[in-house]
């Protein structure tokens, strides 16, 4: 038993930074899991990716103004993300460009601008920090931010769940009854950006979206109901966080990629074995009884 203790518990018992990282992972999982699931259900899986890149120039400008300051970089990232979402939304509304194409165009501009700003004014180390983050560097202030975002996310999602879901299901009907689809959509996109901003301190802008999407996509293979899916995605995200931190501790791996890769392993496993959508159970079910 002592062995298991050393393997699983000791790292957290001994080091404060590991405990904070674990708490951060739990908060991130609680916020990002459900938001990612709504993205999947709205067929916007790649939108999270786009938004995570869009955040970069804002974070970079925040970095320029105030150095490696969490509030400045978070506010900058949030503003940049929401700006890209607004511009892309407006372009879709007033031109013939489809929403996904419009998002692609604006996030690419935003990303290029971000890389430009960082490379003109910072060292490579800074760029690496913004792109890849470090969950082990999560301090108390960052923890408060991540936890606040998670609370706000869950509360807001609970409030706008009905219109958001119905809008994904049957947009024309919702327009016919006069529901303001655009408003809910925008609120939801703000939640997406908020969660990415919360995630990038810990995981970096590139990896934050991984914790949002991989557990969410995995969860659709395990559950029938939305509630079940949300619980599964939070569970998978947190388990990946826990496992990734331990892997990172014992094998001296960077924690962000370790966490996301573990979520990826969970996804690959689920593809084969998950009861609802997995390949093997589907194959077995397809061999139906005679009567």
């Amino acid at each position: 038993m002592l062995h298991l203790y050393d393997l699983l518990v000791a790292p957290f018992a001994e080091f404060g930074f590991m405990r904070r990282a674990l708490a951060g992972c739990l908060a991130l999982a609680l916020g990002s899991g459900p938001v990612g699931l709504m993205l999947v259900m709205r067929r916007m899986s790649l939108m999270g990716d786009a938004m995570s890149h869009a955040v970069l120039p804002g974070a970079a400008i925040g970095f320029l103004v105030a150095g490696l300051s969490l509030p400045a970089m978070s506010v900058g990232g949030f503003v940049a993300g929401v700006l890209v979402a607004l511009l892309a939304g407006l372009a879709t509304r007033f031109t013939g460009v489809k929403e996904d194409a419009s998002f692609a165009a604006f996030f690419l501009m935003s990303l290029a601008l971000g890389v430009l700003i960082v490379s003109k004014s910072g060292s490579n180390v800074d760029l690496m920090h913004i792109l890849f983050g470090s969950v082990l560097a999560v301090d108390s202030a960052a923890l408060v931010l991540i936890a606040s975002v998670a609370s706000l996310t869950l509360t807001t999602l609970a409030l706008i769940y009905r219109p958001l879901m119905l809008e994904s299901l049957d947009p024309v009907f919702m327009r016919a009854v006069g529901a303001k689809g655009g408003l809910w959509h925008l609120l939801f996109l703000m939640l997406v950006v908020l969660n990415l901003v919360a995630g990038f301190q810990a995981l970096g802008t590139l990896m934050a979206v991984g914790l949002m999407m991989l557990p969410a996509i995995t969860s659709r293979l395990w559950a029938h109901s939305v509630g079940g899916m949300m619980l599964t995605s939070v569970g998978v995200a947190f388990a990946s966080g826990l496992g990734g931190l331990l892997l990172s501790y014992h094998f001296e791996l960077p924690s962000g990629p370790a966490i996301i890769l573990l979520a990826g392993v969970a996804y690959l496993f689920s593809l084969l074995f998950a009861p609802v959508g997995g390949a093997l159970p589907r194959y077995i079910r397809s061999r139906h009884f005679e009567q």
Binding site: S168, L169, F173, A223
Partner: peptide
């Protein structure tokens, strides 16, 4: 108003 079925995403849980 009843939209055409193709306008509705029936895969949602």
């Amino acid at each position: 108003y009843l939209p055409q079925q193709s306008e509705i995403d029936r895969s949602l849980p």
